[in-house]
């Protein structure tokens, strides 16, 4: 494994920003560094070779982004979170709106969106909810759209589903084909997938619930603060925001515009414009 110093990491993030408009300048340094080193390792690049490639081959940026971002995800990750969704949060939204909108920000390969679709299906309200799933990484979005996963990932997904205490068996929702789990297309028919960058992107809609779990951990505090403002603006008053179980917003400027609805599962509610 090679090493890379901060000055070179800054050169790389500056170059990507200037040339391609992706802004990683405020990402958490430790994981950004590991990701860049990983790419150098995979492609057998020195720092200089990597910088040259990024400068001279614009098509390389997609592959670079795909490797740089951390796409690791699971269906029904933290089953207790999903139980609270089903038993408290969604019912609370339904009291006020028969139809509503959910945004999965940083949806990665789509496991979280599919989990939500299954949950809504089991609650019998799938057709009343519009889901938006966004990510900055276009390669991973394509995978999310396909709703197809390697069978070897299904063991963990099934275990999570059982802990979530779903109505049936996860197998009810997919069929096996050549080592792949192919989920029913119909589950995703109310999902709009689109490319969106949380750092540089515009506000594009208003939501009743936003899930942004295990995405902001890759940002430094300055950037977390800015992105929280965007979420605030993208939520209807009394809308909910869910972040990862080990994330915290308490020190953010906009924290006082939210109340904690469930501290264990990190679910917040916007109470002030």
């Amino acid at each position: 494994m090679q090493d890379i110093d901060i000055a070179d990491l800054k050169r790389i993030s500056e170059l990507i920003y200037q040339k391609y408009g992706y802004d990683f300048r405020n990402y958490a340094m430790s994981s950004f560094k590991r990701r860049v080193l990983r790419i150098m390792d995979l492609k057998r690049f020195t720092v200089e070779a990597l910088i040259r490639k990024l400068t001279e081959s614009p098509e390389f940026i997609h592959e670079f982004l795909d490797e740089l971002t951390v796409n690791v995800t699971e269906m029904f990750r933290d089953p207790s979170f999903w139980r609270i969704m089903r038993e408290e949060i969604i019912p609370a939204i339904l009291l006020n709106h028969k139809q509503f909108k959910i945004w999965h920000a940083g949806c990665s390969s789509g496991e979280e969106v599919l989990s939500m679709a299954i949950l809504l299906k089991e609650m019998g309200i799938h057709q009343d909810v519009q889901l938006y799933a966004t990510d900055l990484d276009t390669n991973i979005l394509e995978r999310a759209k396909s709703g197809t996963y390697s069978i070897k990932n299904m063991e963990l997904n099934e275990k999570n589903y059982i802990r979530f205490q779903g109505a049936g068996s996860l197998k009810d929702y997919y069929r096996e084909e050549n080592g792949l789990a192919v989920f029913n297309k119909e589950l995703l028919n109310n999902v709009t997938f689109r490319k969106h960058d949380l750092v540089t992107g515009e506000i594009f809609n208003k939501f009743d619930l936003i899930l942004c779990r295990n995405v902001m951990i890759y940002f430094n505090q300055t950037l977390q603060n800015e992105v929280l403002k965007k979420f605030h603006e993208s939520l209807f008053k009394y809308g909910y925001l869910a972040i990862g179980s080990k994330e915290s917003l308490i020190w953010c400027d906009y924290a006082n515009r939210f109340i904690v609805v469930n501290n264990e599962e990190k679910i917040y509610k916007k109470i002030k414009d």
Binding site: M29, S30, S31, V72, T73, I217, Y218
Partner: peptide, 13 residues
Amino acid sequence: SVELGHYFALSTE
């Protein structure tokens, strides 16, 4: 992870 400013950072890599 530990970051240069002496704070923690989590990741799901």
